[in-house]
């Protein structure tokens, strides 16, 4: 006769490997989960060690105060980071000028005005915009936006800060729009109804109630978008040029921190040269900028979150 199910269960209970498995699995999973921590540690250590090597050759003070970036000069190489920072900020500034008004307007439209059906169409399209590879945006900046700009403003050069700035702006619109929309949509419906019941127009509800209530989320979305713009690489590598400059000109070739790293990487600066180490110093500076922005975004959204 067949043993009962409970008997069969009792027999298999005795097996040792089952208990061992229950003990070892969490350990394995913990090790897997620590890979992300190791990655962060790896990034920080890599940047620190190679940057230290860089600073044994180029004085730290020269790097952080210098206003001339001239790495490829044979006898008079200069490594003052400011021209690259200025280049990065120029592109970021243009991007923010483009993306903030459009992104926030889209967020307001989606959260306050659009019907559920309209939202269901527009949001996925914005997601597509967010999913376009940056190399494609770079190509678009170089072969479309720059020529169009040149047709209107002949003084704009083939490489400039405006065209990649605009396209970086287009790239970060979905980020600002979707994060801001999330923040606005999380303002409870009952609060909106309270304002509407007093005779407010939708615009007044958005402007006086929803936006102030969601402000921390909106600001955080902008800060995160700034971080993305600072770290953006391919658009500026293709369309901004490779001329590190310490001035306020947006119409001519510039160079950003990211574009410099790419420029060196695709050249053949040999391993161990000062130029090789310089990309780590620049990378570290870039890392600090974006990290500061990310931490600021987290702080803003936690510290100034509205309670309701």
């Amino acid at each position: 006769m067949r043993p009962s199910v409970q008997e069969m269960i009792a027999q298999s209970k005795g097996k040792k490997n089952k208990k061992a498995l229950e003990k070892i699995i969490p350990v394995i999973l913990f090790l897997i989960a620590s890979v992300s921590v190791l990655t962060s540690i790896g990034i920080v250590l890599t940047l620190i060690f190679e940057t230290i090597t860089f600073f044994t050759r180029v004085p730290f003070f020269d790097f952080i105060t210098g206003t001339t970036w001239l790495p490829f000069s044979n006898n008079e190489a200069q490594f003052g980071i400011w021209p690259l920072i200025i280049g990065t900020l120029k592109v970021t500034m243009v991007a923010i000028i483009v993306a903030v008004p459009i992104g926030i307007s889209a967020a307001i439209y989606l959260s306050e005005y659009a019907s559920e059906n309209v939202r269901r169409v527009i949001k996925p399209i914005l997601e597509i915009l967010a999913g376009v590879p940056t190399i494609v945006y770079g190509f678009f900046a170089l072969t479309f936006v720059t020529p169009v700009l040149q047709a209107v403003f002949p003084e704009i050069k083939i490489f400039n800060a405006i065209s990649p700035g605009i396209v970086v702006g287009i790239m970060i619109i979905p980020m600002i729009a979707s994060l801001s929309e999330d923040a606005m949509s999380s303002v409870p419906k009952s609060i909106r109804e309270g304002a509407l019941a007093m005779g407010s127009t939708k615009f007044e509800v958005a402007w006086k109630i929803t936006i102030p209530a969601a402000l921390s989320g909106i600001v955080a979305s902008i800060v995160l978008a700034v971080s993305r713009a600072i770290g953006e690489t391919m658009i500026v590598s293709l369309a901004a040029g490779s001329t590190p400059r310490f001035d306020g000109d947006f119409t001519g070739s510039i160079q950003t921190m990211t574009a410099y790293i790419v420029q060196v990487s695709k050249g053949d600066a040999g391993y161990g040269t000062t130029i090789y180490y310089s990309i780590y110093a620049v990378g570290f500076t870039l890392f600090l900028f974006t990290m500061a922005m990310n931490i600021l975004a987290g702080y803003v959204s936690k510290r100034f979150r509205e309670e309701y």
């Binding site: 609060i191 309270g194 005779g199 006086k208 102030p212």
Partner: peptide
């Protein structure tokens, strides 16, 4: 219409603003 007809809801729904700004909201708009 809603300017002439006020409404109080099931759950209190003050705006996430100061008490003063809540009450001053209507006159301000």
């Amino acid at each position: 219409l809603r300017t002439r007809v006020g409404m109080v809801f099931q759950k209190p729904n003050p705006f996430p603003k100061s008490i003063y700004d809540n009450v001053a909201y209507g006159p301000r708009i």
